[in-house]
Design a protein around this nucleic acid. Structure first.
Length: 490
RNA sequence: GGCCCCAUCGUCUAACGGUUAGGACAUCACUCUUUCAAGGUGAAAAUACGGGUUCGAUUCCCGUUGGGGUCACCA
């Protein structure tokens, strides 16, 4: 049995589209699952769309996602180069073979004539706007003469009339097209570069790709590709056209309606694990109820049969939830470097926090966040003293007698030596007991004093993380700075 | 408009002729609790419509409607 080979063949537009990520992922999963090879090929045959640094960025982003390929621009393989702009000679050679066999032909029509033709057809309301094969009528001598005189030309695919092109799509089944609705596609542009259709077919064959897994937007040009395989006399790969990723309004996912770049999601603090997990589930499932996967588990479970046919709306809500899930499943040790990165990007960058301290902060906050950077925004008080005290919490929890209570607590805390969480709890309990009040009467104002807010980790985690000395300072500060407010009479 | 594809809760989906149509996100309620979360329990929420085939259709066929994709010297 032949080795399975798949490829991800993006054009370097400057960023990795999340739809592209899913296509890459499915290709990757399918190859890995079947012990095959996954190839990255750069389709940069449109010179007008050249973007500086796009290829490097694409590669970096793919690697950030852990989608490593076996052959690609920077990974040597037997069928390189893997950048189409470096394969121009190959395409020319191949397209000339088609011309010789009459499956393709030179066309010298000007853009003006083409535009006029289209306009006329539009006016006549012809069923299908197509090139009129005008240049097919040229004799070999005429063609030769024009070529020698240096006239600009393209090479077109010679689509036959009244034929049916059939192919089997793994996801959609048998699909048929009538060639009367297919245009004589340009294969080689006047600048000498191939179009997608030519380069794609030639490379997929030369690179021994066995499964073409790509987005549904390619479905209607697949008959052209089928014809090319037949004209070249090549064995066809298997096709699998993936359902599209959709905007909330169900149109094709686009920049205009939110973020589409993987880099954006990365910058916003989404974990690669969450992004991969989420995107894998858009259009595929293992047939069970499972929602949480790691990449290696996806490899194990993936099959093209599990891919469904209809488009999937990219639902930020679920991605957010998954991000939280992945954060909660990670160990404190794994989260530590992520938090350090976030600190480096924050206003606390110049400060030094010990790993021990940060780990305590992480375990206190881990189940309260959806993003790692929320450790800094939601609990800034772990990185500096409270800069203000939440007004509503003062109203609710800071009573006239609170300073007295907290002073007693400070006394109790000062007696503790290297306290554990339990020691803090005992100390607080004994103060409450002495005062004959409920623990909550102390806990709430204490939380306010320590953090400036009314929400956050358990109070003893808070005390333990901040430590005895710092806690006492904060309590004293609060006693000085918070003024009791008469309850509003309304 | 032509061609092609698609159609189960708001969203992602399960069901591959027989289920009280299941799960997840989001929403709401309850619960746990020192707060906020997380967790637990529960509620509301779907087979687009019309014909067939069949003892029986979410499931198979046809049509309608709706949505999407594509019609470049872009990929």
């Amino acid at each position: 049995m032949n080795e399975i080979r798949t490829r991800f063949a993006p054009s370097p537009t400057g960023y990795l589209h999340v739809g592209g990520l899913r296509t890459a992922l499915y290709n990757f999963l399918f190859a890995r699952k079947n012990n095959g090879k996954f190839i990255l090929r750069i389709e940069d045959t449109d010179r007008s769309r050249y973007v500086e640094g796009a290829v490097e960025n694409l590669i970096q982003t793919l690697k950030w996602c852990d989608l490593f390929y076996d052959e690609g621009p920077d990974v040597d393989g037997p069928y390189g180069p893997y950048i189409q702009s470096q394969r121009l000679e190959i395409y020319r050679e191949h397209v000339e073979k088609l011309v010789q066999k009459g499956y393709a032909y030179y066309c010298f029509c000007s853009p003006e004539r083409l535009a006029a033709l289209r306009e006329e057809q539009l006016k006549l309301k012809v069923p299908q706007i197509k090139y009129d094969k005008h240049c097919l009528k040229l004799s070999p001598q005429e063609v030769q003469k024009k070529l020698e005189s240096g006239e600009k030309y393209v090479i077109r695919l010679n689509i036959p009339e009244n034929q049916t092109v059939k192919f089997y799509d793994i996801i959609r089944g048998e699909i048929e097209f009538d060639t009367n609705f297919i245009d004589d596609q340009v294969l080689l542009k006047s600048d000498g570069y191939p179009t997608y259709h030519l380069a794609n077919v030639v490379d997929d064959h030369l690179m021994k790709i066995t499964h073409v897994i790509r987005g549904e937007e390619w479905l209607s040009s697949t008959p052209k590709h089928i014809l090319l395989y037949e004209y070249f006399g090549w064995e066809k790969p298997q096709f699998a056209h993936l359902p599209l990723l959709l905007n909330p309004d169900r149109s094709k996912l686009s920049k205009r309606q939110g973020d589409v770049a993987v880099e954006e999601y990365r910058a916003k603090g989404y974990l690669k694990e969450a992004l991969i997990n989420f995107v894998a589930l858009l259009g595929w499932n293992a047939g069970d109820d499972r929602e949480f996967y790691y990449l290696n588990e996806l490899i194990e479970k993936f099959s093209l049969e599990g891919v469904n046919k209809s488009g999937a709306v990219f639902d930020l809500n679920k991605l957010l939830w998954l991000n939280g899930e992945h954060i909660r499943k990670k160990s404190v040790e794994d989260l530590l470097p992520l938090l350090k990165d976030e600190i480096k990007k924050s206003k606390y960058a110049s400060q030094n926090f010990s790993d021990e301290y940060l780990k305590l902060v992480i375990s206190a906050m881990q189940e309260r966040i959806d993003f790692v950077h929320e450790i800094i925004t939601k609990s800034y008080y772990f990185f500096e003293r409270p800069i203000s005290y939440e007004e509503k919490a003062i109203q609710k929890n800071w009573k006239q007698e609170t300073p007295e209570h907290l002073n007693l607590l400070v006394d109790a805390l000062e007696k503790l030596d290297n306290p554990s969480k339990e020691d803090y709890e005992k100390a607080l309990n004994s103060v409450a007991e002495k005062l004959q009040i409920s623990k909550g009467k102390i806990i709430h104002p204490l939380r306010l004093a320590l953090s400036g807010t009314s929400a956050g980790p358990g109070i003893f985690d808070l005390l333990y993380t901040l430590g005895k000395e710092e806690s006492i300072i904060r309590i004293k500060n609060a006693i000085q700075n918070i003024t009791y407010k008469e309850p509003k009479t309304s």
